[in-house]
Nucleic acid binder design. Sequence first.
DNA 1: GGGCAAATTGCAACCGGTTCCTAAACCGGT
DNA 2: ACCGGTTTAGGAACCGGTTGCAATTTGCCC
Lengths: 333, 333
Amino acid sequence: MTVTLKDVAERAGVSRSAVSRSFTPGASVSAKTRAKVEQAAAELGYAPSALASGLSTGRTKLIGLVSNNFHNPVFLEVFDLFTRAIQDRGLRPLLVNLSEDTDPEAAIRMLRQYSVDAVIVASSTLSPAFAADCKAAGLPVVHAFGRATQHPEVPVVCIDNVEAGRMAARALLARGYRDIGFLGGPAGATTTQDRLAGFRQELARHPGCRLRESFASTYSHDAGAAEMSRLIDTGPLADAYFCGDDVIAIGALGVLRKAGRDVPGDVGLIGFNDMEAASWGLVTLTTIRQPLDEIIEVSVGQAIALSERPETPVTQTLLPLTLIERGTLRPRM
Amino acid sequence: MTVTLKDVAERAGVSRSAVSRSFTPGASVSAKTRAKVEQAAAELGYAPSALASGLSTGRTKLIGLVSNNFHNPVFLEVFDLFTRAIQDRGLRPLLVNLSEDTDPEAAIRMLRQYSVDAVIVASSTLSPAFAADCKAAGLPVVHAFGRATQHPEVPVVCIDNVEAGRMAARALLARGYRDIGFLGGPAGATTTQDRLAGFRQELARHPGCRLRESFASTYSHDAGAAEMSRLIDTGPLADAYFCGDDVIAIGALGVLRKAGRDVPGDVGLIGFNDMEAASWGLVTLTTIRQPLDEIIEVSVGQAIALSERPETPVTQTLLPLTLIERGTLRPRM
DNA sequence: GGGCAAATTGCAACCGGTTCCTAAACCGGT
DNA sequence: ACCGGTTTAGGAACCGGTTGCAATTTGCCC
């Protein structure tokens, strides 16, 4: 049924090695032989088996793409960019959904079984231990959207969440807000902690400020809505809130509007991520944008580098953020 | 570096065949041998190479998951469900992003090279020719979210778009709307055509109705917004619109609110898909839900069946829709 | 035309499993 | 202890490529 190297070799009247070499860039074949082979291959519709070649060369051109963020709308964009970046370089993404109920160890075993050339972990909520375990299992790995640390075990490509906190604080201060709220994601998440740290840091430089802290239980619309409801019920609100991410902000925004509060008139809101919905007419959320495309380009580049030269030193890449002004903060003063 | 069958065999003091059989369910091995093998394998941390076994058995446990919908938020949910469904059955999704600039032929060649067990095309906007080409290339294929036809070439799992049109019409009529608009997706899309057909059909049964037809240029927020702007600018609006999908509806909703029209007071809106954002507090969109989970379960089931018995007859599965009432239509009369 | 180095070619072993086939080990029964 | 029938085990070929090595061909120069 399937046409193999041997079939092409027979048809072209050459050896199997000659055919193999004709398909290997830079191998030693005469123009004449290559022509015969290509002709025969075309006639037969031959395509070399990636399995067989992966088996003998040890490289499969498969990249394990692991994530557990299948509910955050930005990740659709992330998957789009990742799959394209991977495909553009002649590789293929083997997607792994590492949701609650899947065993991380099994996932790693699986990635080894398919001998993927590298693994890219795309998640801000997954423990760094997972990436470290991949590395321990001998898989080249890059953690995109991970946490920057002093002594990273694996390459991390991310933004500086502490700086994100500072940036949000500066944006709020510049617009004259003084009674300021932090409406973070889950209190235990490192992203929340880092952003809060930066946020506090910057506010501390402005004596007259008040900071109130609260947390949504997850990075989700409903959690953001629930937390904002609670804040409304339990007392006067701050003048403006820095939200854990855009979905949380949108949840909060919905509750505020329903409660008759004007945004940004009564309350200011700033989100994080710049997901597509942030620009929707109903939303027009002021937010901080992560450079998704750069994060992804760098991640894929590093993954490939690492798969080619495993001894490549472990580095950390911090990429710059951008404030996207829309309509949920009052103008600069 | 990697531990192979041979290593395990030597350690366990048995032949390579014995090891292989120990890992093949239903093979003939004595309990004693299997125990020795399992012990040795555990000690060595052995995991059989999926490549090698794929090469000799012809089955790779790889499922090609092809889509070009990386901008429609429902597809994040679709990918979540697909990857889980596939993983739950011990298979792996090889993701293919078939965006504009990627060559469908190259994609098919690639899927053959990796000898995926089956291909699932997950897209409502991709030509049925792609799935047909997969089949012609000898790949078992299922088209999820495809179009139902009289003589399907490949199995299709979808909803009945004509019925969707009727359902939307009935919902609007039941709420007393009589001057009714169809704000479809791209006019050339089969989904648009089918829904419009059903919509007309049902309205035709109610003599006193007026139907106005218009189309957004793509299934996107901005296209929906643009088309609604145009409608507002060019004359009086209908009483209610059936939108091509939820993103289009949300785009239209944003424009209406900004123009000072009350929804549902002045204008009613019904969407399609029931994407997550439809339930957001800011949106509360009345819409028609496709049973994503069922579509995906059935698709995966059929893909597997087809890969195991290629002669499985080609069937078409139409799954039922549900009206989800939220806040963009006035109450039933 | 002869001689030499460089380019090409084919052979054969190997990548890591699977499976057919035959031979050996095992079983209960007498 | 012996027999016939099952299990179980191992040898070897195969899946479809890749690649080191030795042999052959080619091209060039004298």
